[in-house]
């Protein structure tokens, strides 16, 4: 872990079976065309579609893990 290459610190991390982590300030447009400004240093964007606080992840994906194996 000596090379401080960008790959050690990506802008986006796709979590298997879970959200997409997004570093920095961004505006995320949801399925309905509504814009959501990120508010924290790292945000988790829901990829399972089941979150109750979309576009953000709320951990609900964990209940789907066993039925729906991650596709990535």
């Amino acid at each position: 872990m000596s090379d401080a290459s960008k790959s050690d610190y990506p802008d986006i991390i796709l979590c298997p079976g879970g959200p997409m982590l997004l570093r920095g300030d961004h505006v995320v447009q949801d399925e309905n065309g509504n814009d959501h400004q990120t508010t924290r240093p790292v945000s988790a964007v829901c990829r399972c579609g089941k979150s109750q606080i979309k576009p953000w992840c709320d951990g609900t994906h964990k209940f789907l893990r066993k039925q729906q194996p991650p596709t990535d």
């Binding site: 979590c15 879970g18 959200p19 982590l21 924290r40 945000s43 606080i53 951990g59």
Partner: peptide
């Protein structure tokens, strides 16, 4: 905490403990 900890759990597991254990 619903929103923050959904981020933090991923960070704590992947970028913190995961990297610690690689080292």
């Amino acid at each position: 905490h619903v929103e923050a900890d959904a981020v933090h759990e991923q960070l704590a597991v992947r970028t913190i403990c995961g990297v610690l254990l690689e080292e």
